[in-house]
C-alpha cells in the first residue's frame, strides 16, 4: 500500500486543529498565582509539541546525513533534505511561540545565557543554513557531503538541548512531563498528548512528502538530460 505523504500530513493538520480547539476551549485555565500571563499559557499546547517535532526532525536529519555520508544512500539523502525542511519549519514555530510566551511570562523574549534556548535556536539556524545552502549549490557529491557533515555534527546539540533544563535551570523551566519533580493537570496532559501525536504524524507526513519531492526533482533532472541528449 502506497500512502502518499500529503494524506498523512492532512491527518496531522487535522490533529493540530483539534489540539488548537481543545487548547482554547476545553483545557483548564491556569492560576494567576502560578503564571504571570495565564492566558498566554495556552501557547503551551503547540509550543511543546512543536519542540518535540523539531527534535524528531533533527534526529531524522542525523540519520539521513550519517547514512548518506558513510553509505552513499540516495534514500538517506532524500531523508536529509526532507527532515532539514521539517526541522526548520517546526523549529521556527517553537522559537517564535517561545519568544512570544517568554515576553508575556518572563518579560523578555530571549535570554542569551539559557542553554536550551540557544542550542535549540542554533539547531533551527542549522536547518536554515542547510535548506538555503542546498538551494545555492548544484546537486552533487561535494554539496551532499558538505551539508551531511554539518547535519551530523549539528546533532550533538540535540542531547544538550534535551538535558539542558535538567542540568542548568537558567530561564527555561524544567520538565513537567514524565518526571517526579513536575506535575501536569490530567486534562492538560490529554491535550498535550493529542498535540504531540498530531505533530508526530505531521512530521512523518511532511518528511514522506518531502522525500517524494526530492525523488521527483531527481527524476526531472534525468528526464531533462535525456531530452537534451536526444536533441543533440
Amino acid at each position: 500500500m502506497n500512502i502518499r505523504g500529503e494524506v498523512v500530513t492532512m491527518f496531522g493538520l487535522a490533529g493540530l486543529g483539534l489540539t488548537f480547539w481543545l487548547g482554547m476551549e476545553w483545557a483548564p485555565s491556569v492560576s494567576i498565582n502560578a503564571f504571570k500571563a495565564p492566558d498566554a499559557q495556552r501557547i503551551f499546547y503547540w509550543h511543546v509539541p512543536s519542540a518535540w517535532a523539531a527534535m524528531l526532525a533533527f534526529g531524522l536529519l542525523f540519520i539521513g546525513s550519517t547514512y548518506w555520508f558513510f553509505k552513499r544512500s540516495e534514500w538517506a539523502w532524500r531523508l536529509h533534505v526532507a527532515s532539514s525542511e521539517a526541522g526548520l519549519a517546526t523549529g521556527l514555530m517553537c522559537v517564535w511561540s517561545g519568544c512570544i510566551w517568554g515576553a508575556a511570562e518572563w518579560g523578555v523574549p530571549w535570554d542569551w545565557t539559557d542553554i536550551r534556548l540557544n542550542t535549540f535556536a542554533m539547531l533551527t539556524l542549522l536547518s536554515l543554513y542547510l535548506v538555503l545552502g542546498r538551494k545555492s549549490q548544484p546537486d552533487g557529491i561535494e554539496a551532499r557531503d558538505t551539508f551531511s557533515a554539518f547535519g551530523m555534527y549539528g546533532f550533538v546539540l540535540v542531547p544538550i538541548t534535551y538535558v539542558a533544563t535538567r542540568l542548568w535551570q537558567i530561564r527555561h523551566p524544567g520538565p513537567v512531563i514524565a518526571t517526579s519533580e513536575g506535575s501536569l493537570n490530567s486534562d492538560m496532559s490529554i491535550v498535550l498528548l493529542i498535540g504531540a501525536i498530531s505533530f508526530t504524524v505531521l512530521i512523518i507526513g511532511h518528511v514522506m512528502a518531502g522525500m517524494r519531492l526530492t525523488n521527483l526533482e531527481l527524476r526531472l533532472e534525468d528526464l531533462q538530460r535525456q531530452y537534451e541528449e536526444r536533441s543533440e
Partner: peptide
Amino acid sequence: VMIRLLTPI
C-alpha cells in the same frame, strides 16, 4: 553558502 547563519552559536 551563508555560513554566517551558524555563527550565533
